[in-house]
């Protein structure tokens, strides 16, 4: 068959991913670009890059499913599905035993319960505010003049955590400023921030419940501080794919291949 490749595009609030799979659901290539201000341009860029890596011309893609906040802006998509369904499908493909998926992206965090036959049973999402999402950590990294990539490791090095009482991003930011002014060690403040975000996510996890093995997806899975603290709460190790940001796009590609 000439057209036996499928693509998934996940246009998130911060990053856009494209994934290409073949009809056996094998991953051929992927790309990650910044979403920026123009979602449809980001989707195009991500798709072109993935096609290039796979050395495929555009017309070999039989079906494209778009997901993520910018899914409506993907003109090339044949179908649009929510991140909930796509992250569940992606995690299922990578870790068949997983029944709970936690996705922590830039502006959202979600917890998904997958049933025995892979169907969506239940989910919870954060409310309107950015507390408990990657954006929260980004803002704090900037405020503390620490590289985002280093933030999680610094949290793990700290001996204790300073308690952060506000989960509202804006209030937490000013709280951090005053903690710095009071000469609290930076790494302890950072650990405090991680504890705050993990507590917030933990509340969400509890509304859905922990079922079977748990996967963590989204960019925040790259943060070892969050991973560690979350594993402590869960009392089990998290399944994390080497490129956690592409799981949603992978799920979309898998669904397109069905």
């Amino acid at each position: 068959m000439p057209n036996d490749y499928f693509a998934g595009i996940d246009v998130g609030s911060l990053s856009t991913e494209a994934v290409i799979v073949d009809s056996n659901k094998h991953l051929l290539s992927y790309s990650i670009v910044n979403t920026g201000i123009n979602s449809s341009a980001a989707a195009e860029e991500a798709l072109s890059e993935a096609l290039q890596k796979a050395e495929l011309p555009r017309n070999r893609i039989a079906k494209i499913i778009a997901t993520g906040y910018g899914r409506a802006a993907v003109g090339a998509a044949h179908k649009r599905m929510t991140e909930i369904t796509c992250h569940a499908a992606g995690a299922q493909q990578l870790f068949p035993e997983v029944r709970t998926v936690i996705d922590i992206g830039g502006q959202d965090s979600k917890v998904i319960h997958i049933g025995q036959d892979g169907q969506l049973v239940d989910f919870a999402m954060n409310d309107k505010c950015a507390a408990g999402t990657g954006r929260f950590l980004e803002i704090m990294a900037k405020r503390l003049e620490v590289k985002l990539e280093k933030l999680g490791d610094l949290a793990l090095l700290a001996e204790k955590a300073v308690s952060i009482s506000n989960t509202c991003t804006v209030f937490a930011e000013s709280e951090v400023v005053s903690l710095v002014a009071q000469n609290h060690p930076i790494d302890e403040i950072i650990r405090g921030l991680h504890v705050a975000i993990v507590n917030r996510i933990w509340n969400q996890v509890q509304t859905v419940g922990v079922h079977g093995q748990v996967a963590l997806t989204g960019g925040v899975a790259l943060n070892r501080g969050v991973v560690n603290l979350l594993e402590e709460k869960l009392e089990q190790t998290l399944e994390i794919y080497s490129e956690p940001q592409i799981v949603g796009a992978l799920g979309a590609a898998i669904l397109a291949s069905k």
């Binding site: 906040y69 909930i84 969506l120 049973v121 999402m125 409310d127 309107k128």
Partner: peptide, 26 residues
């Protein structure tokens, strides 16, 4: 879905859409 009875400032269009669409998918 998070919202309010009359104060539309407590309602996020995009977020609600995603939740409802995911619910439809469920």
């Amino acid at each position: 879905i998070d919202g309010d009875i009359t104060d539309a400032r407590a309602y996020s269009e995009e977020q609600t859409r995603t939740r409802l669409e995911a619910f439809f998918e469920t």
